[in-house]
Design a protein around this nucleic acid. Structure first.
Length: 884
RNA sequence: GGAGGGUUAGCUCAGCUGGUAGAGCACAUGCAUCACACGCAUGGGGUCACAGGUUCGAGUCCUGCACUCUCCACCA
């Protein structure tokens, strides 16, 4: 048996254990007809940086689930990988190049991509290392990247399929444009921020009627350069006469019509709305309805594009200022009022987004959304917790076409080619040889790339070899559960579901386990700008990976945010140490004796042995249920309190006398039990705290070498032969007595060093037997010099103190310590407590409706309680009587 | 404007299908007991935000309200 250090040092253990698993190929899953598959795809971390606490939570949940299933006997595959994170990475690489004095455009597309790949290699390996540190048992042989060859092929295949089906189209529509990143964005990438702005009221003169004006109100006056109409509500009586007339657009002199459209809210502003179809999504729709011209008045970098005006080339905000000033000079500015409004910003860079009309690629969503909605209705797809299905459904029911093209270089290039001669567009996997229309041979590929989420949407099946019908795909797909945060339900979960159904005919997973955000100790979001982020690896360095994992798993219900509190990490570390020391103690003792056959129940099992065996047995069943329901926090909580309280604080203390005795014929049974229970508990704990459990298991089971590993051990099942309900009940009775004695001694200020005789007085033969069964440890736990179980009070001095437990009185003679007054006070308090219980119980039992309607079992339970309390009350009263 | 959370011990949070409120930390007291002071023992502390309702019985189900967080939404 190997020697264990006095305190557990994760730093000395974790890397070695991880290497052991890697060497043993323990994470690898293969198609195996003899086993059932269990599959989780890892949400691919972005290659933009390192992992944060959210990743730690996400991956700890997945790792715990996959380890549990692996032990249960499934062929458990945890498919890892990274995401190219198009915009985010492009921004980062661009920044890095700029710092090195390199301009992206000068470098050119190819050069930039080279730099981006280098970046990817660096960050990918960093991320993988971090995942190793946290103990992730993903199948690293199958590491994938969203832009690797297979994924690129899958993306191309899907694009072409959807195009041919008419679900992908190219069109000039209004999209969100980020002037800094220089690309279009999907609606999901735009976050609305409330900002303090202004409402400018401006007069537009009516043509041919000097002195007559229409007053509009706007938050973006510069866009008036692109106005092509002013709209009023058709029912608005104030403006009946003016519909159809022309206005002179100030500063440009252009003439624009007044139109009527029910989109206008009569109650808001002046009731007149300037219409800028090229720079506002609503105006765009109005423009379509009325056949208005779309005037694009912005360059891609959000400078003004109005040649011939003084504003041309100005920045949008500069122009806003200038235009307001000019309007004021012309006397057309009526007033400026402060106004809070929502401004769309780019989620990656925070820049205010400009709606613009540009030719882009879109996915038609209406048809594909339908089966994704149905999947929830049929129960094929379930969220845990369930209420997130509402979020999911709401998004799908209000879905709009998805803008998938991006004006970026880092990403999957759109497989569309244009003929240089006639402009014919061909969507195909390869560059066409000849133009089908004009026969031209000169083709250029569309410069745009695809939205990152277009490829992420295929992740659960593309990583398994799809579109090829690989054995892996057939075996491991659809996957078992997806674990992710609620923040990417729209971005990712929804898109995987409809893509999965459309491409593979099946939902990509049946369950979605949703977790929340990890916040800081004050409950704030961890963010770079606040500088309040906690690096999970700092926690690993300080307290170990198991402690980090435990901290993240306990007390966190699915879907809820949690705070990362250092004190909890410390408590988790303490638990590892506790387990370590309990194991150390057991191993020290195992050395000293011959151990019975581990597979056969040994001779000489006592009450305490049967109790703890029975407990670990039933807890194994409980935990299995919790795990299967994704209640990992509850499961872990149960193993922890079992190990610490029941096993360490009670059982180990109970067996110590037997272990220390020179001759005890039940010593073997005790050792057998210690080892059996520890092994079982290690297995139950392993999914959550893999390192410390593996290390102990290694030392406990394989003193010779790393052959059998805990990671491959079988998950404990409930065993009928280890169920001992009677011994459980007996032990609980003894525990109650011990607790009573300890409390009494404490109250009397009797030091532990002062042993006393303990008399258990009972006339009940069962109770008598119970206490006779626990003679080996009852005395030591209760600090007794001697324990006597008897029916009468012989040998007990009058002034002994006593406690009352059901069906028995326990006396301790502390002759010189007893304070009769104090004793009476204590017993009086006990009498009050019992009186309260009795009246509560009687109240319930005298309620005829309770008797009629409550389940029989409950009524019986209550009757038994009442009998117990009444019996105890009698004893207390007798004691009080005796004190007089 | 919609939708969804949260509100339980001083702090951070659990609490499954309704049956006398739990953990960790903190606090108090005692203890170097030969696994562990990253420990052991004992104890104090909660009208489960508020108001109704359903029920024999509600922290748990329903309705309303207050405060708070988050998400979604085109109000110029």
């Amino acid at each position: 048996m190997k020697e264990l250090a006095k305190t557990y040092s994760p730093q000395d253990v974790e890397d070695r254990i991880y290497a052991l698993w890697m060497k043993g190929n323990c994470f690898h899953a293969e198609v195996n007809a003899k086993k059932k598959p269990y599959t989780i795809v890892m949400p691919p971390p972005n290659v933009t940086g390192q992992l944060h606490m959210g990743h730690a939570l996400d991956n700890t949940l997945q790792d715990s689930i996959i380890r549990f299933r692996r032990m249960q006997g499934y062929e458990a595959l945890w498919q890892p990988g990274c995401d190219h994170a198009a915009i985010a990475t492009e921004v980062k690489v661009t920044e890095k190049l700029r710092e090195e004095g390199i301009d992206k455009r000068e470098l050119g597309r190819e050069g930039f991509l080279k730099a981006a790949w280098k970046w990817k290699e660096e960050y990918e390996s960093r991320i993988v290392k971090q995942l190793h540190k946290m103990g992730s048992s993903a199948d690293w042989d199958r590491l994938r990247f969203t832009m690797d060859e297979g994924c690129s092929y899958a993306v191309q295949t899907v694009f072409i399929r959807l195009f041919e089906k008419g679900y992908i189209y190219k069109g000039s529509r209004i999209i969100n444009w980020c002037p800094v990143c220089g690309t279009s964005l999907s609606d999901a990438e735009v976050v609305h921020e409330e900002q303090q702005g202004h409402f400018w009221h401006i007069r537009y003169p009516v043509v041919g009627e000097p002195g007559r004006y229409v007053e509009i109100a706007t938050t973006r006056p510069e866009t008036m350069l692109g106005d092509t109409a002013v709209a009023v509500h058709p029912d608005d009586e104030r403006y009946q006469g003016i519909v159809g007339k022309e206005l002179e657009l100030p500063l440009t002199g252009r003439r624009i019509p007044v139109i009527a459209d029910s989109y206008v809210d009569m109650e808001f502003g002046t009731g007149c709305v300037k219409i800028t179809p090229a720079h506002d999504p609503n105006d765009f729709e109005v423009g379509k309805r009325h056949g208005l011209q779309e005037i694009n008045m912005l360059h891609d970098d959000a400078t003004i594009d109005c040649p011939g005006t003084p504003y041309d080339g100005m920045d949008r905000y500069e122009a806003r200022k200038a235009i307001v000033e000019d309007l004021e000079k012309l006397g057309l500015l009526v007033k400026t009022v402060p106004h809070m409004h929502n401004v769309g910003t780019h989620d990656r860079c925070g820049t205010t987004v400009e709606p613009m009309v540009k030719p882009q690629w879109f996915v038609r969503m209406e048809e594909m959304a339908k089966p994704a909605i149905r999947a929830i209705e049929t129960g094929e797809l379930q969220f845990v917790p369930d209420n997130f299905s509402k979020t999911y459904l709401h998004w799908l029911e209000n879905i709009k076409d998805w803008c998938i093209s991006r004006q970026l270089w880092w990403g999957h290039r759109i497989p569309a080619y244009y003929c240089a001669d006639c402009g014919k567009m061909v969507v195909a996997a390869e560059k066409p040889e000849r133009c089908p229309d004009c026969g031209g041979k000169d083709f250029s590929q569309d410069p745009d790339t695809l939205d990152t989420w277009f490829s992420s949407a295929l992740w659960p099946f593309e990583t398994l070899g799809w579109p090829e019908e690989t054995p892996e795909y057939k075996y491991f797909y659809p996957t078992s559960v997806l674990v992710t945060g609620y923040d990417i339900i729209f971005f990712w979960v929804v898109r995987m579901v409809f893509s999965g159904i459309e491409q593979t005919g099946s939902v990509p997973f049946h369950k979605v386990l949703i977790h929340g955000l990890v916040r800081d100790e004050q409950g704030r979001k961890m963010s770079k700008s606040l500088g309040n982020g906690i690096d999970p690896l700092d926690v690993v360095d300080k307290y170990g990976a198991d402690a980090l994992r435990m901290t993240l798993l306990t007390g966190n219900a699915p879907g809820n945010d949690m705070r990362f509190v250092w004190a909890r990490a410390e408590a988790s570390r303490n638990f590892m140490n506790k387990l370590w020391n309990a194991s150390r103690f057991i191993m020290m003792n195992l050395d000293k004796a011959e151990l019975p056959d581990p597979d056969v129940l040994p001779e000489g099992l006592g009450m305490a042995d049967k109790w703890i065996l029975s407990r670990v047995n039933s807890i194994a069943a409980d935990i299995t249920r919790n795990m299967e329901a994704f209640d990992l926090g509850i499961a872990l909580d149960k193993v922890e309190s079992f190990l610490w309280e029941e096993f360490c604080d009670w059982y180990i203390e109970m067996v110590k006398p037997r272990l220390y005795a020179e001759h005890d014929e039940t010593k073997g049974a005790a050792l057998w039990t210690l080892k059996h229970v520890l092994l079982k508990a290690l297995k139950l704990l392993h999914p959550f705290c893999p390192f410390v459990t593996e290390e102990i298991y290694d030392k406990l089971e394989n003193p010779e070498g790393p052959d059998g590993l805990l990671i491959r051990a079988e998950w404990p099942l409930f065993e009928e032969r280890l169920s001992f309900p009677e011994e459980e009940a007996e032990t609980e009775r003894v525990k109650e007595a011990v607790r009573g004695i300890r409390a009494l001694r404490k109250e009397m200020n009797v030091p532990m060093s002062r042993k006393a005789k303990v008399f258990v007085v009972t006339k009940n033969p069962e109770v008598k037997r119970t206490f006779e069964h626990c003679m080996s440890f009852f005395g030591s736990l209760a600090f007794a010099s001697e324990v006597l179980v008897q029916e009468g009070k012989e040998g007990i001095s009058e002034d002994a103190v006593s406690i009352v437990i059901p069906e028995a009185n326990i006396y301790m003679p502390f002759a010189d310590l007893v304070d009769v007054e104090k004793e009476r006070e204590r017993l009086t308090k006990e009498r009050e407590r019992l009186a309260k219980e009795i009246s509560r119980s009687k109240g319930m039992l005298s309620n005829s409706r309770f008797l009629e309607k409550a389940p029989e079992e409950k009524v019986k339970e209550e009757r038994e309680k009442l009998a117990k309390y009444e019996q105890m009350m009698k004893q207390v009263e007798e004691r009080l009587e005796g004190l007089k």
